[in-house]
């Protein structure tokens, strides 16, 4: 599934028109990937049928379980499909406590809880991003997201290699979780992403005008183009394995 980060209803409409499966509402002016305001989230949620998933990011949350749990509750009350809680300068125990309180805050809602870590968090002496599956499992979260915080041209693969990401994604799947990867991903990264095969690929800059995640706006043509590039790789029109894939039975089309 393709997830596009949006800042407002106009961008959400562009995303859906281009074929996005999930619109992820965030606010770039707060910590690069911060939370948007409740009226914006409500407006986006109401604009689309339930089949269009509307996720909410809380970005990098403070180490305050009550504050985060209340924000998570807000996402549930707004009807978000999922809410992402990300950690950077937290220790494991604090992050786990926050996620457990977030889990409790979502009781009675259909909103899924996503534990997020940042691949580049070692730059900030933050939590090891590879702990995300363990965090999600121990907190009974519904899914994982691995993203990046720096937006300086480096992306997810500059911080975690394909094999590590593949391992984390498979571990998450085998625990029944949804798995998502994001972090300045471009069309050039699609081969690696398809080999890793997360359930969700998240983008923004790649589908913005001028490729500018902050100064540009989401463009439906760019979304459709990226989605088609992804589709071609998924169905084998573009070989992402370079002949290295395991040989499977050949079936008549």
């Amino acid at each position: 599934m393709l997830m596009v980060s949006v800042q407002n209803l106009d961008e959400a409409k562009e995303s859906v028109a281009g074929g996005a499966d999930i619109v992820d509402v965030k606010n770039l002016r707060e910590m690069v990937i911060g939370s948007n305001f409740p009226p914006v989230i409500r407006e986006v949620r109401r604009a689309f049928p339930a089949g269009v998933h509307v996720s909410v990011t809380l970005g990098v949350v403070p180490n305050q379980a009550g504050t985060v749990a209340l924000a998570v509750y807000g996402a549930g009350a707004l009807g978000a499909t999922s809410v992402k809680v990300g950690f950077i300068q937290s220790d494991y125990g604090t992050a786990l406590r926050i996620l457990r309180e977030s889990r409790r805050a979502l009781e009675g809602f259909d909103t899924k809880l996503i534990a997020a870590t940042f691949a580049d968090s070692p730059l900030y002496a933050g939590i090891d991003p590879r702990l995300v599956v363990q965090l999600a499992e121990e907190s009974q979260s519904d899914g994982i997201l691995i993203d990046t915080l720096v937006k300086d041209g480096r992306n997810l693969f500059d911080f975690l290699d394909e094999a590590t990401l593949k391992q984390l994604v498979m571990e998450g799947k085998e625990l029944g979780m949804s798995t998502a990867l994001s972090g300045t991903l471009q069309i050039a990264n699609l081969n690696q992403l398809v080999r890793i095969n997360p359930d969700i690929v998240g983008v923004r800059g790649a589908v913005c005008t001028r490729g500018d995640r902050e100064g540009g706006a989401v463009d439906s043509t760019a979304v459709a183009h990226l989605k088609d590039e992804l589709r071609q790789r998924l169905v084998g029109q573009i070989d992402v394995y370079d002949g290295s894939a395991p040989r499977l039975p050949t079936l008549p089309a």
Partner: peptide, 30 residues
């Protein structure tokens, strides 16, 4: 949001050895 592996993992726990699960996937990586 959850893919076929998550569904298979969940489903298999309810089944007996020899039971058959039908999995539908739409792409080569899956």
């Amino acid at each position: 949001c959850k893919g076929v592996i998550a569904g298979l993992e969940r489903g298999m726990t309810e089944l007996e050895p020899g039971d058959v699960v039908l999995a539908i996937v739409e792409d080569i990586p899956s």
